[in-house]
Design a protein around this nucleic acid. Structure first.
Lengths: 239, 239
DNA sequence: CGACCTAGTGAACACCGTTTACCCACGAGC
DNA sequence: GCTCGTGGGTAAACGGTGTTCACTAGGTCG
């Protein structure tokens, strides 16, 4: 019994080592620097051995993506832990700033995860979906925001939004956060969506250097965007 | 003389053929389907011959990117041609919708051009910069928009914005559009920047399928975003 | 005519993902 | 205690990649 367990643990160890080396190669040499042979070389085995752990190169990459998302989620959660639960604006700002800071510190991971066309997979299933959703959900659970009335959301979007809300409520329930249904209106869901669009656009453009002109210091623009977003949502900016 | 000219034209022809085939492979088989040997095979030569035209694979890709940007610019300009110059809101909407439509119709080109981290190159120099800037500039030249007063732009961004404005004014002057300096305030430049951030975020998320939940029909969200953006800028929605 | 340039070739190099056959240590069952 | 099966690992090979290098056919020019 313990023998089998020991073997399982060893397997899990090398598995984790594989992913760690893959990520190291990603951050050091870019996406095209991560290669099966390179990984194997680094951990002292041969390339075909990796097929004992992953079905293909693509499969490995996908698992690396999951790891990256999990790390991002952990970092955001840690940053959130420093802020009292009552300070809703502070928590929103922490998540936004944390996301930007992480993206700037990990541009290649960001590109891999957020700028690779994902098939029509259930986005909320993928590990990133959970980050934004649970974090946002927790913020949402602690205090109600000012959101547009339901009639203001585009009618053709209602079906998608109701499904979104249901998914998020389930996900929150799993993590033990109970959100009263009446707090989570469709307008709230719509607001979260718009929030994410602007946050993502700002950060992606900064990481990719795709502003329409060379921006030397993008931080003030980011800060003003977040502040604007916060006031639109009815939060007063902290300090 | 004409002999040399004829040779030059032949060279230019094959050069264009190379880029066309590269692009065809990109749209058919994705980014990793475009390969020097594949291109050479398709046009009936061998791979090393391509080095007579480009320094490296990377170099070729970069030129393909330029072509893509040029085509996008042409398409936007054509769409703009159908709308009378006086109809400023119509022109703004045409550019936004045109950008989204193009991105959805050419997802792989979009990924290549807009989601590949670009070095700290002069963004306004790259072919895309010109699209957004000249189109926006022309719209801007025909009528003045309602923009925030200069004091509202983040002070730390002033340096970047003044440089941006100067670059854009030069670029516009080159294409024969004269914009009075007093029309083009720093607030205007800032507005254009924010406009682009939201437009890009929306379109990129849709193309990459990275909304926080599966969105079946993203068009209503796009439309409402553009409408919101337009009213913020002081344009009344057309029709 | 001979010299020169230029687009193109063919072979080679090092690397890649992947498959196949094989090997060998080791725990399980008799 | 002896097999036997299994799972991690290896070596070799296949087809593919970007890139380099020596070389060649063909046209231009002095």
């Amino acid at each position: 019994m313990t023998e089998a367990a020991r073997r399982d643990r060893k397997r899990a160890d090398t598995d984790q080592q594989i992913r760690a080396v893959a990520r190291a190669l990603l951050v050091e040499h870019g996406a095209q620097g991560v290669t099966l042979r390179g990984i194997a070389r680094e951990i002292g085995i041969t390339a075909p051995a990796l097929y004992r752990y992953y079905d293909s190169f693509e499969d490995l990459i996908q698992h690396v993506c999951s790891d990256i998302c999990a790390d991002l989620a952990d970092e955001l959660a840690a940053g959130l832990g420093l802020i009292p639960e009552e300070d809703t604006p502070g928590r929103v700002f922490a998540v936004c700033r944390g996301f930007r800071a992480w993206a700037i510190r990990h541009p290649r991971e960001f590109s891999l995860v957020f700028a690779t066309p994902a098939g029509p997979q259930a986005a909320a299933t993928d590990p990133f979906g959970r980050i934004f959703l649970t974090v946002a959900g927790r913020v949402l659970a602690t205090r109600t925001l000012v959101v547009p009335a339901d009639p203001d959301v585009p009618p053709r979007l209602l079906a998608d939004l109701t499904l979104f809300r249901a998914t998020l409520l389930d996900s929150l329930a799993e993590t033990g956060v109970a959100v009263p249904e009446h707090v989570f209106s469709l307008g709230t869901a719509y607001t979260m969506l718009r929030f994410w669009v602007r946050l993502y656009g700002q950060v992606a453009l900064e990481v990719f250097g795709r502003f329409p002109f060379p921006v030397a210091d993008a931080e003030p623009m980011f800060e003003s965007m977040v502040a604007e977003l916060a006031t639109e949502v009815g939060l007063t900016a902290p300090r």
